[in-house]
Design a protein around this nucleic acid. Structure first.
Length: 869
RNA sequence: GGGGAAUUAGCUCAUUUGGUAGAGCGCUUGCAUGGCAUGCAAGAGGUGACCGGUUCGAUUCCGGUAUUCUCCA
């Protein structure tokens, strides 16, 4: 049975049990400050469990792309070392939202495993929650009784709170769970040691394959448990593990989920995968695992970057590079070459990768090249350190290599040992810990419990039509971050648009009688609209009026509609490979990132501006409709990868032949309202991604007026019709004049030098020249000395001058005198001259300069030097 | 969001307690060589990212801004 068949059978099975089969949500998470990536099958359904919104179906089944790189059992550094941990994995799940519960869940899971997949019943064990006195929780008799119908009682094990009580987070839905484990050991081993003793004991062949969670409580901030009104089922079965069990393999990497990738790596590197624990074999596993995580996150819209979720991708990618660089002896970009293999493999389940194959490959290649460059730089730094070190590379240097130059510690270790050097690991760890605690302290957020004011069924957004509504506060809470206190407020109905789809959140005020409260920002947490304020109203329970700042909103709206017009224009001008990769729309500007591989030419930019402005002048009506997703896609709406859509979507159409996009943002009624549009900047943000910044309406007009008046002023200043030509000529002339001036100065100085030479006197066989001269700058003084030098030998020269009311002294000593008379110009200047003129100075032995406040002592300076001879 | 670092000629990079900014490649010109990454000589090319401060004097020290790299969250 192939992996693809196993997946399909799961979905078909639950479809036959009246489940709606849903596609995987994007692996990249938006609108949730607590999560960077989907890390479990239930994550996309959080809102349904929290009661923020109703589930579209009571029963759902799916396979969900998940990513885990941290946590107790998911250290990135462990992936590939063993045979069953992954960064990205698929989680098969079936879900009940207030529908069926323990009985059906248990019955169906048994039916699927034993009758569809035909797993040997002797190899299966299940666990149920034993209860917990401290929490006041009873033994899960209900599940136990259900299991008893299918499986011998000695195969039903009791688990404690750690293993068999699942919680979503510190607070929120939770409940007992029941796991199914499979014993994949050989017959002899099984006869020797009973499987039951190995459950949850980290045995690589006795593994949990499925967890059924029965949500029936909600954890409060004070730690107490409240029963949930609706009970839910949340199950998760690790797909890669399941395939391994069903295909009878010892390792996940030996299943057809990974073998095609491993074969491709063998071909590219000309090395063999030998299933061992060698570094080389680990490298194969690391690469075949990481390429999946990297490819799917990029396809779902997260580019590698140096912060947040993008940084996680970068780290995974770099770990893969490190492995092929060090252990497969491959020094060029490799990962991007694997893309065709996995894009093909997942073509039917996750088509988003195949559709963006070229783009994803280019991003990965670019990123690999960048890191290989970083490695080069680190190697150079490493060389320096090796030269200066005799036995142990100190922690500070190891940390600096790692922290500042991004040079991986394992490479430092490897190269160090090749040069007979050790690494001070303890000091490195200490530095690392310091950095971690500093970062944590800076981001610590203290969130208090919600204070319920009015119970409301649903949080309603009315801001598409109304900017001013009477409503009441549903709940609020205090949030403390970086010593700053803020309040989050949820309203029953709100006109405030929450930051989403690039459009910033609304600002405005809440009013209660004459009392006003400023709303500084509006954000979404999952689907909950949260208003931010610095304080609270005196009485939060009274009715309030919520009022959006109208001016800011309308200007933001101009910019948002203009973004759609521009997106369509870009596709016309540059081609249909242009896809949105991110955007920022606020009252002042619009910024739009899109996939495109070269810098836009001036003509292309002008063409886009022309098209957008033409569409504005046509005053096209903007038509907004709520439609089922499938219908919208049929209309030709641009389906944006990485956007998670519900069943009905909001379709924004500006001329059905021009622009149709799925969008939740706010838009103008007719394009004419935008007024005018202009692009102010075009730049690169990442490999294959360009960024445009633009202005509309009044801001664009101000921009034009400024430019025109600047141009006018320049023309007036130059008294020229064509200022460009004039400026070009001015620059040319200026350069020529500067050169001429410099030549003239040098000539003048040469003449001066010749004249001065005649004033040289001989003292005790040494030529001495001490003069007070008039000169324009210290630079000229130095140049003069340079001119004098070839004209004199065996000479000591002292020149003094007053430049900008400051005393300046230059002392020049012939090389011969430096040794024969032990003269040192720098010493002279510092010890004898500088104090005289109340200043400082220095230089080299043969030439030094000094400057000071006191100009009255310049004659004495010359005398002082003279007496030295 | 919090640290660390970098920014010097068209490109790649030097320049130690602050004292007239250098190299290689590339470019221009001349000469040599039948051609191949040819040789010799001369030359052009720098507001040392930007803005302030300390200093007689800052590429160098200090602060700020921008951009890039990097680590952590």
């Amino acid at each position: 049975m192939t992996a693809a068949e196993i997946r399909q059978q799961f979905l078909d099975f639950f479809q036959s049990k009246q489940h709606a089969v849903m596609p995987s949500a994007p692996i990249v998470v938006k609108n949730d400050p607590t999560l960077l990536f989907i890390n479990s099958g239930m994550a996309p359904f959080k809102d349904y469990f929290l009661g923020n919104k109703p589930a579209p179906h009571k029963r759902i089944a799916d396979t969900q792309k998940c990513l885990r790189v941290s946590g107790k059992h998911n250290d990135l550094e462990e992936v590939g070392v063993d045979t069953y941990h992954h960064t990205m994995f698929e989680m098969l799940g079936n879900w009940s939202f207030g529908d069926y519960f323990k009985k059906e869940a248990i019955e169906w899971s048994w039916e699927l495993l034993t009758e569809v997949y035909k797993l040997d019943k002797d190899r299966l064990y299940v666990t149920v929650f034993e209860g917990d006195e401290k929490e006041g929780l009873d033994f899960d008799q209900e599940s136990y009784d259900e299991w008893k119908k299918y499986i011998a009682e000695d195969r039903i094990l009791r688990g404690n709170k750690k293993d068999n009580f699942w919680e979503m987070g510190d607070t929120g839905p939770c409940g007992p769970c029941s796991e199914i484990h499979a014993d994949c050991r050989s017959a002899e081993e099984r006869a020797h040691v009973a499987g039951a003793t190995l459950i949850n004991a980290d045995h690589p062949q006795v593994i949990e394959i499925w967890n059924n969670v029965f949500m029936q409580f909600s954890r409060m901030k004070d730690g107490s448990l409240q029963p949930l009104p609706d009970r839910h089922v949340d199950t998760g079965m690790g797909f890669e593990r399941l395939v391994r069990v069903l295909q009878g393999k010892q390792s996940n990497y030996d299943t057809d989920v990974f073998t095609s990738t491993i074969t491709a790596i063998e071909t590219i590197t000309n090395k063999k995968y030998d299933y061992s624990d060698s570094k080389q074999a680990i490298a194969f596993r690391v690469l075949s695992d990481h390429i999946r995580a990297i490819s799917f996150t990029i396809a779902d819209g997260q580019l590698p970057s140096n912060t947040g979720a993008g940084y996680v991708i970068r780290r995974i990618l770099r770990r893969a590079v490190r492995y092929y660089y060090s252990y497969l002896d491959y020094k060029q970009p490799l990962l991007h070459q694997l893309l065709p293999v996995i894009a093909m493999q997942f073509d039917t389940v996750f088509p988003e990768l195949k559709k963006q194959e070229d783009f994803v490959a280019r991003v990965i290649k670019e990123e690999e090249e960048a890191f290989l460059r970083t490695l080069e730089k680190g190697l150079k730094k490493m060389d320096e350190i090796i030269k200066q070190t005799s036995t142990v590379i100190n922690g500070k240097e190891v940390f600096e290599l790692y922290d500042t130059y991004g040079f991986p510690i394992d490479l430092t270790r490897l190269i160090g040992s090749e040069n007979g050097l050790e690494v001070d690991e303890a000091a490195f760890e200490a530095k690392m810990l310091q950095q971690k605690t500093r970062s944590r302290a800076a981001t610590a957020i203290d969130t208090e419990d919600w204070i319920e004011v009015h119970e409301v069924a649903k949080n309603i957004f009315v801001g598409y039509d109304d900017l001013n509504v009477a409503t009441k506060v549903a709940r609020y809470r205090k949030v403390k971050a970086k010593g700053k206190e803020q309040f989050q407020i949820v309203l029953e109905t709100t006109p405030f648009y929450a930051e989403s789809g690039g459009q910033v959140g609304d600002v405005g005020e809440l009013m209660m009688g004459s009392e006003k409260l400023n709303i500084t920002d509006t954000k979404k947490e999952n689907d909950l609209i949260i208003h931010f304020a610095d304080s609270l109203l005196e009485d939060m329970s009274l009715p309030v009026t919520a009022k959006v700042n109208w001016e800011k909103r309308i200007e933001t709206t101009y910019n948002h509609t203009a973004t759609h017009l521009m997106h369509a224009a870009l596709r016309q001008v540059l081609g249909t490979h242009v896809a949105q990769k991110g955007s920022l729309v606020n009252a002042d500007i619009l910024r739009f990132d899109f996939s495109h591989f070269s810098k836009m030419t001036d003509e292309e930019i002008r063409k886009v501006e022309e098209i957008v402005n033409e569409k504005i002048r046509k005053n096209i009506p903007v038509v907004i409709k709520e439609l089922p997703k499938e219908e919208a896609v049929k209309l030709g709406a641009m389906a944006l990868f990485g956007e998670k859509y519900g069943d009905t979507v909001r379709v924004v159409t500006i001329d059905p032949n021009y622009s149709i996009e799925l969008c939740g943002g706010t838009h103008v009624g007719h394009t004419g309202m935008i007024g005018v549009f202009t692009i102010t900047a075009e730049s690169a943000v990442a490999a294959g991604v360009r960024r445009i910044e633009a202005l509309t309406g009044a801001a664009a007009m101000r921009y034009f007026v400024d430019k025109v008046s600047q141009h006018k002023q320049i023309a007036e200043l130059l008294k020229a019709k064509d200022p460009f030509k004039t400026v070009e000529k001015l620059i040319e002339d200026k350069n020529a004049l500067e050169k001429k001036l410099e030549a003239l100065e040098n000539k003048e100085l040469a003449v001066m030098a010749k004249e001065l030479v005649t004033k040289t006197t001989s003292i005790n066989g040494t030529n001495f020249l001490g003069l007070s001269i008039s000169i324009s700058s210290t630079d000229a003084l130095r140049k003069l000395a340079a001119q004098l030098k070839p004209l004199l030998n065996n000479a000591l020269v002292v020149l003094t001058s007053v430049v900008e009311e400051k005393a300046q002294v230059l002392v020049m000593v012939d090389e011969a005198l430096v040794t024969s008379k032990n003269l040192d110009a720098s010493k002279l200047i510092k010890e004898q001259i500088a104090p005289l003129i109340k200043g400082g100075g220095g230089g080299q032995k043969t030439m030094a300069t000094a400057g000071g406040q006191d100009t009255s002592q310049l004659d004495k300076v010359i005398e002082t030097i003279k007496t030295l001879l």
